[in-house]
Design a protein around this nucleic acid. Structure first.
Lengths: 118, 118
DNA sequence: CCGCATCCCTTTGGATACTG
DNA sequence: CAGTATCCAAAGGGATGCGG
């Protein structure tokens, strides 16, 4: 898990690494895509199907939801399994360890909001 | 500090809070704006002036840098002080506690990248 | 030195309609 | 049921030029 990573004695070195890499911005822009973390969260919470997620977020369009699911899969945050190849079939998404670790950080971010933005 | 928040016995409740609030997306979109976290980071690392930040990131335009600094200020992540009212004058930015707490989460996110994306 | 105004190009994401 | 294709409107951000 990411939270088990050993830090140096101070945060300074990590900030240096952060500054050198400068790749958090790319990640932020990726996971900041509309509905993306909500979709990841809802899969985690037991809504593993396209239609179930749509129920949870009625205002997301089919197209965008499909795009987010494809992104989440190619990011390695979820795994997609097709249960039946016939019509109508069923797809089921499950959150990976990587995805769960990211959701943990999203919890931290949410707590940061609660603390600092009320 | 955000990390001192008491969690319930399981993460489930926090995920529920996260799901109910669904506001991480807004935050992600805000802090995911181009250059924004890099600028916050560089202020923290001792580049508190407009021109110094420009040196660190030559490819950012004046307009966007100015916009990011205004956003960071209105978000409460930095504080701006004008040292001289005459021409030419000098502005100095400093990171707030709120901003520092956010940078801590950015470190976690960076570590997540290192662990899961190599 | 520290920005803002304007213009314009690129990206994002919603609406509608259609398939295996 | 689970998507894809196409079109289009809105927002983001770079280039250039100007102001206190």
């Amino acid at each position: 898990m990411a939270t088990n990573i050993k830090y140096s004695s101070t945060n300074y070195q990590n900030l240096q690494i952060l500054g050198e890499a400068c790749d958090v911005n790319d990640t932020l822009r990726s996971i900041g895509a509309r509905w993306k973390m909500q979709v990841l969260y809802s899969i985690r919470q037991g809504l593993p199907q396209f239609s179930k997620i749509k129920e949870a977020f009625p205002s997301v369009s089919d197209q965008v939801l499909g795009k987010r699911l494809r992104e989440l899969e190619s990011d390695g945050l979820v795994i997609k399994r097709v249960l039946k190849a016939s019509v109508p079939f069923q797809s089921v998404y499950t959150v990976t360890e990587k995805g769960a670790a990211l959701l943990k950080i999203m919890e931290d971010l949410h707590q940061w909001e609660v603390v600092w933005n009320g």
